[in-house]
Design a binder for these strands. Structure first.
Lengths: 163, 163
DNA sequence: AGGCATTCGTTTCATTGGAAATGACATCCT
DNA sequence: AGGATGTCATTTCCAATGAAACGAATGCCT
């Protein structure tokens, strides 16, 4: 079978290529890693988030959040403080500088994304949107058996090593 | 803006999740890296390939090919020899063991992929296919205006030779 | 033919990224 | 209460990754 016709390959490769276009903006031009970019995105939307809500809303695991937050804090784009109610948790908030940066970068990223997406016929664009949404549902249904009958479903970042 | 509604984010996250399902098969269960998997895929299709054709047909850069080939050779799944006509190039060929492994793994990977894809309504599946193809074209047209259509896009090599 | 520049694949080096280990804290259970 | 257990963020360790450096080989050009 020719690999170019294998759907999973095509999806992965196209998604990567698209992503690379955007990384060129927030990464190469503004020095943000993908995790930092996403974290900043979340925080500019929410203003402030504690680590619990954060882990529920992102595809980032704890380690990634920890590292991205650390770097963003160093750069002065977010603040990080221990949460009073549960001192194991953290509360993250975006700073004015962070908001400023994000808005600027977001404009550029969105422009680049639209430049590509608008080059597609409207019908194809709608199809893509529909298809991605459906695939998302299919994967979710697959990995988290509907109704949660299964007591064990894979949680990101969990391993079943018994010590 | 909520990040979940930002299309580039959704695409990246869904594609990653889908890919992860497949990596779980060829990676976790069979010890192949993504690059090794792709290289093996190419070689089982072509039987033999020299490094020139290889670089034209894949999204892998030189370093990735070199490393993946090295490991596959160590495992006895491919052979690698200097090309007579141009001794800078290499000729890769899949071995019987490699073909054997690939067929076995491919069956599992395909099954897993179909398990997910078949869970989607046929219309959504068609939409996804159409959308991905269109996005591929849009990116190709964007990065390489007016060149060959199809699944070819940029390789991250940015050799800015001075002069 | 013989230098110069180019094109390869591979190696090196510094950085990244993931998985397990760690330590702080909270919760449970008796 | 208070020890055992669980949960969290962070750190540590090591494999993987990417960019630049390198050495070998070829093409070009006079």
């Amino acid at each position: 079978m020719r690999i170019e016709t294998f759907f999973p390959y095509r999806l992965a490769v196209v998604a990567e290529a698209f992503s690379r276009q955007l990384v060129a903006v927030y990464g190469r031009e503004h020095g943000l890693s993908r995790e930092e970019w996403r974290l900043l995105f979340l925080l500019e939307d929410a203003g402030t988030l504690d680590s619990l809500r954060l882990s529920q809303r992102t595809s980032l695991d704890k380690v990634q959040v920890s590292r991205a937050a650390s770097r963003l804090e160093d750069k002065g784009f977010i603040t990080r403080e221990v949460l009073g109610s549960d001192r194991r948790l953290r509360n993250y908030a975006i700073t004015a500088a962070g908001r400023d940066l994000f808005r600027r970068v977001f404009g550029e990223v969105e422009a680049r994304a639209n430049e590509i997406l608008q080059a597609m016929p409207a019908g194809d664009r709608a199809a893509l949107d529909q298809g991605i949404a459906a695939l998302d549902r299919a994967i979710a249904d697959m990995t988290q058996p509907e109704k949660g009958h299964g007591t064990a479903f894979p949680r990101p970042g969990r391993s079943q090593t018994e010590t």
